[in-house]
């Protein structure tokens, strides 16, 4: 194994020991859970952007579909993870499959715009769900149960479940990109005509990849709804999609695990700045711009150059 291959494992290991190393308070755990959940969404987006070359500006929609599946089932008294999880993931995959079937026929700026448009469509749909809080959002009765237990109520358990699913998301995306399927996606990102000229149409591969990323986004949405015990249209605002894309770029587009770093850095910096000053966004924005300008290869590129 090369040293670079160990770096993502080091990041996951750091998250595993964090609760035991002084970050075990409920404040820290809440923050870390949020970072890991957004990290999952960012990793699945990085799979699309860096792997398949599909720059989606609507990825928060899959997050939102997953989160709203939790809310809607909760409102109908269904709170068992064994039901909620597959339903939420399937709904997010289905949403991505349907919207992707149209979006993937376009490319470049058109693809960005059409994913944004579908994202907005989902946003306005949730805003109009009066039975589930409409604009105001919906507060869950409680966290999703796991096989009848209240496992997710335990902050530490929730931390490791988030970490486990983050690791799973990363591992799955890495495996997919290395497979035959991923090879087609990677080749088509660089040169779609070359892929066609060896006898493969990129479209179905991209569509399946898009649906898989959507399913993983939905999984993150289930956790996000549980982390805050609250779901609102803000979960799938276009700003959220932009933030996810930003985490991917901040972390480094070519490396899946970079998205985890990007999400961590984004969430921690955002929280820290917000505590320091009232107009923190005035500082946050320019900082992000500087990071993109000067961090070639993103944070993961920086780390890989130091330790790879």
């Amino acid at each position: 194994m090369t040293r670079e291959a160990l770096l993502p494992l080091a990041v996951l290991a750091a998250l595993a020991v964090a609760p035991l190393a002084g970050f075990g308070g409920s404040y820290e755990l809440t923050l870390l859970a949020r970072a890991m959940i957004l990290g999952m969404a960012a990793v699945s987006l990085s799979f699309l952007v860096g792997g398949a070359g599909l720059v989606s500006l609507g990825h928060a929609a899959s997050l939102g579909v997953g989160a709203y599946a939790v809310a809607i089932l909760d409102a109908h008294g269904v709170t068992e993870a064994l039901i909620v999880l597959p339903v939420a993931v399937a709904a997010a995959a289905g949403f991505s499959l349907l919207t992707g079937a149209v979006a993937i026929r376009t490319s470049g700026v058109h693809f960005i715009m059409i994913t944004l448009a579908f994202g907005q469509m989902a946003f306005f749909t949730t805003s109009s769900l009066a039975a589930y809080g409409g604009d105001d959002g919906y507060t869950l009765y409680g966290r999703t149960e796991v096989a009848g237990t209240r496992l997710l109520e335990n902050r530490l358990a929730f931390h490791y479940i988030c970490l486990g699913l983050l690791a799973l998301t990363w591992g799955l995306c890495a495996m997919l990109l290395a497979s035959r399927f991923g090879r087609v996606l990677r080749a088509a990102r660089e040169n779609a005509q070359r892929v066609e000229a060896v006898g493969l149409a990129p479209y179905p591969f991209r569509l399946v990849g898009y649906a898989i990323a959507g399913a993983l986004g939905g999984l993150a949405g289930v956790l996000l709804a549980n982390a805050t015990e609250f779901v609102s249209p803000a979960t799938l605002s276009w700003q959220r999609s932009g933030e996810l894309l930003f985490m991917v770029i901040l972390g480094g587009v070519g490396r899946l695990w970079g998205a985890i770093l990007g999400a961590l850095a984004f969430v921690l910096l955002e929280t820290w700045l917000a505590e320091q000053m009232q107009h923190w966004k005035l500082v946050f924005g320019p900082l992000l711009v500087l990071a993109v300008l000067f961090l070639k290869g993103g944070l993961s590129g920086l780390v890989a150059r130091r330790h790879g």
């Binding site: 495996m175 399927f181 090879r183 087609v184 080749a187 660089e190 070359r194 892929v195 000229a197 179905p204």
Partner: peptide
């Protein structure tokens, strides 16, 4: 027209893969 970021071998392996069974293999 080649995939510039692939090694020479992976460029050809992609073509071989297109000819040998399904490319919908994930594992």
């Amino acid at each position: 027209s080649i995939v510039a970021g692939f090694s020479a071998r992976e460029n050809v392996a992609l073509a071989a893969q297109a000819r040998s069974g399904s490319s919908f293999r994930f594992l």
